[in-house]
Amino acid sequence: MHGSASPGWLLFALCAVTGAYCLLRTRSAVEEQRRTAGAEALMGFGMAAMAVPAAVMAPPHWAWGAWAAVFGAATVRAGWAARSGGHHLHHLVGTGAMVYMAAVMSLAPSASGHHGHGAAAGPPAVTGLLALYFAGYVLWSGARLVPAAAALGGDTRGAVPWRDRVELAHACRLSMAMGMLAMLLMR
């Protein structure tokens, strides 16, 4: 990333905290929360690792291929789960975007460049389509977050454990979508 490393560190912190929360959600009493929490934790930690500023840690060139393989396997798993619909389709797009970002980074002219600042004047079509998807998802998910929090009302918040709260799972997905959008825009 050109200039200050602060945006990269902020993105790292957002994704790492989100990944940690999703990892803790794997202990949820709600089956759907447990089923998706592991995949979301992988996304959060993977995005955090990709967001570390290149000036601090430049991964070896082979690391991008390893990331593509890990998220390629996650894409296959998400594709299998997406047969039932729901937000598994979003996981499919998200893991596919991670494969794409890893591939772009592996092809970047500078092996130390995290964010693939190529010579192209504008973003490739895939980057643009993914950015549009994640921008739309951020708006849609943010609009859903407010009613979910308001539906819980006053006294019911103490009755639902923090790892089972639906609005926190929505906030987790929202923050990862914002992180992915930022990564795509910084590309």
Rank of each mutant, 00 (worst) to 15 (best):
P124N: 10
V160G: 07
A120C: 05
A119K: 13
A149N: 04
Y137L: 15
R144H: 09
V138S: 10
G158M: 09
A150V: 06
P123T: 01
L130M: 05
G158C: 07
G128V: 08
P161F: 08
L132N: 06
P147A: 03
A143L: 15
L152F: 04
T156Y: 13
L139R: 09
P161V: 06
L132H: 04
G142N: 06
P124C: 04
A151G: 01
G158T: 06
G122F: 13
A135C: 12
G158D: 10
A120M: 07
A119S: 15
A159F: 08
R144K: 09
G154I: 02
V126Q: 07
V160K: 03
P161R: 04
R157W: 08
A125E: 10
G128S: 09
G158K: 12
L152N: 01
G136D: 11
A121V: 14
A119P: 13
L130I: 04
G136S: 13
S141L: 14
L152S: 05
S141T: 12
A119F: 15
L132K: 10
G142C: 05
D155K: 02
A159L: 15
G128P: 02
L130E: 07
T127C: 02
L129W: 15
R144M: 11
A135L: 11
T127I: 07
L152W: 08
A121I: 08
Y137D: 13
R157Y: 07
A120R: 04
Y133A: 12
L139D: 10
T156E: 14
P161H: 13
P147G: 04
L145Q: 04
A151D: 03
P123I: 00
P161Q: 11
G128K: 10
P123M: 12
L130Q: 02
S141V: 07
A149I: 08
A131G: 07
V126C: 10
A159E: 15
L152E: 11
A159I: 09
S141M: 14
A159R: 14
G118H: 04
G122T: 10
D155R: 03
V146D: 00
A159P: 07
Y137V: 14
V160Y: 05
R157C: 05
